[in-house]
Amino acid sequence: MNYGTWKKESQRTFWARALLELGRERKDIVVLSADLSTSVKTSVFAKEFPERHFNVGIAEQNMMSIAAGLAASGKTVFASTFAAFGTGRVYDQIRQSIAYPELNVKIVTTHAGITVGGDGATHQIVEDIALMRALPNMTVVVPADAPETYLAIKAVADYVGPVYLRMGRADVPTIASVQDDFELGKATVLRDGDDVTLIGTGVMVSRCLVAADELTKEGIDARVLNMSTIKPLDRDALIKAARETGAVVTAEEHSVTVGMGAAVAMDLAENAHVPMKRVGIPDVFGESGDSDELMEKYGLTAENIIEATHDVMRRKGGAL
């Protein structure tokens, strides 16, 4: 099973484009980098607006607190680095300097998850969503593809308050159905269905759609939800889908113990008792390898989603 003719595009390129446009439209946009501006593509903004871009060097702690100071003075700040260095390395700076005073800082990271590939476990952070989700006042966004990344960046720029937005390094399949609209805090139904709900976030949304197509052949009609805002979770959409389909599978390129699936599980436990299963990275560190090989090894394929669907369908007492 593969993604056939799906076009693959770079989230980083779309983020860079959105940021550049924001820079042209709004004088209050200031961008911070930490010696990775060419990798995270803030270099595109820096080239046109050198006076509004500060590269602080390999000093992420300094970057986050500087971002706080700029935001306290009315700037809309985008601080960007790799996900591993933009969350775990600076958790306390984000917590005290940004989230606690609810400052208008957007932490936009790339190279999240195991699709980083060859760099290995040190760079493949699989717990960043958990860290950011734990913080009061923080909004957490994981766009599904490149066009949605563009829309999400525009939306978080309009929102006043701290945001964590994560993307991967690798190009990701573009999903036609998510291109039109993006509303912060809203899950979107990409495919209707009544038998089971597949909830994906980030790169796993495309896998959910592929799995749903395959499941049709078995007579299983799967609904697919794109949960691109993980905090605040779109509880209404989640509960509605759980009640209408009676079974839920979540899929994320993140530790399965503490990510989107865990958030969904908690909500379902309290609000809608339906069989559910989480697809994601087990409670382990990653390793070097090719992105697709790693996705397969760590259980992040459409096949894994199909297997999980079979499991919840069995428990639901459905067709299988």
Partner: peptide, 14 residues
């Protein structure tokens, strides 16, 4: 250890 960095942000904005 964070205040001086915050001060830099405020000074840069100025």
């Amino acid at each position: 250890g964070q205040g001086l960095s915050v001060g830099i942000g405020i000074a840069l904005a100025a």
